[in-house]
């Protein structure tokens, strides 16, 4: 996931710290997908609801909640997740694995809740041939995003797979946003405000000065984002 937040009690103080952080890095949480980890947090349902509303008032978009007792969650709240993936999606890779091996005898029953096995499909990708402008978001959790133009300052690209920018990358790029450590980011001119792979991120200040303006390739090695110039 792009970012996991683990709030602590009392929530008021914690929100205060969040505001502090947000004030120091303007727009950091703005429209970023966030997972709330409330494992071990003593909190009632109305308190949780109020807390999520407080976050959304700060433009923090909670897309899932991790470590919550089922009784805490309701239909008006983000879904339960575990390990950064939506729990209801866990079946999917198994279903696809089964479909990818059609000759395995056919005796395996399709998993419950998957009435029709998905046919074999290449990894989906999205191609954008116009500039991504300030204030715009391109979100494609299913796979790679290729942009044959620039990504402006204040724009955002979120891909489940890798991100390729044949132009200047001036905004934010988050690859592997659905939990994919092998996702990579490529761009022909690095001027990004934020780079993230599988939830690990680098802000503009963390980017080595000699990489600025260069064609760069970024990948994840353990918990570190590695960089290398292209050409």
């Amino acid at each position: 996931m792009a970012l996991a937040l683990s709030p602590e009690l009392p929530l008021g103080d914690w929100l205060h710290q969040l505001d502090d952080l947000a004030a120091r890095s303007a727009g950091f949480f703005l429209r970023r997908p966030v997972v709330l980890d409330i494992e071990g947090l003593q909190i009632s349902r109305p308190e949780l609801k109020e807390f999520i509303d407080e976050l959304s008032r700060r433009n923090v978009r909670v897309i899932g909640i991790e470590g919550a007792r089922p009784s805490l969650l309701g239909a008006d709240m983000p879904p339960a997740m575990s390990g950064g993936r939506a729990t209801q999606d866990i079946e999917e890779p198994i279903a696809e694995a089964a479909a990818a091996a059609p000759d395995s005898g056919g005796s395996e029953p399709a998993p419950a809740g998957q009435p029709e096995p998905q046919p074999v499909r290449p990894v989906p990708s999205m191609i954008i041939d116009q500039p991504v402008r300030s204030g715009q978001s391109v979100i494609f959790p299913e796979g790679d995003i290729t942009i044959i133009a620039s990504v402006a300052s204040g724009a955002e690209v979120v891909a489940g797979g890798s991100i390729h920018v044949y132009g200047a990358l001036r905004g934010r790029a988050m690859a592997g946003s659905m939990g994919n450590a092998s996702a990579r980011i490529f761009c022909s001119k690095l001027e990004a405000e934020l780079l993230a792979i599988d939830g690990l991120y680098k802000t503009a200040e963390d980017i080595e000065p000699h990489l600025r303006g260069r064609a760069v390739h970024l990948w994840l090695d353990g918990d570190a984002i590695k960089t290398e110039t292209l050409n």
């Binding site: 116009q130 500039p131 402008r133 300030s134 204030g135 715009q136 402006a152 300052s153 204040g154």
Partner: peptide, 13 residues
């Protein structure tokens, strides 16, 4: 320049 970029995005959408 940044505000213009934002406006161009709105014009396109």
């Amino acid at each position: 320049v940044r505000d213009s970029d934002r406006i161009i995005g709105l014009i396109d959408a």
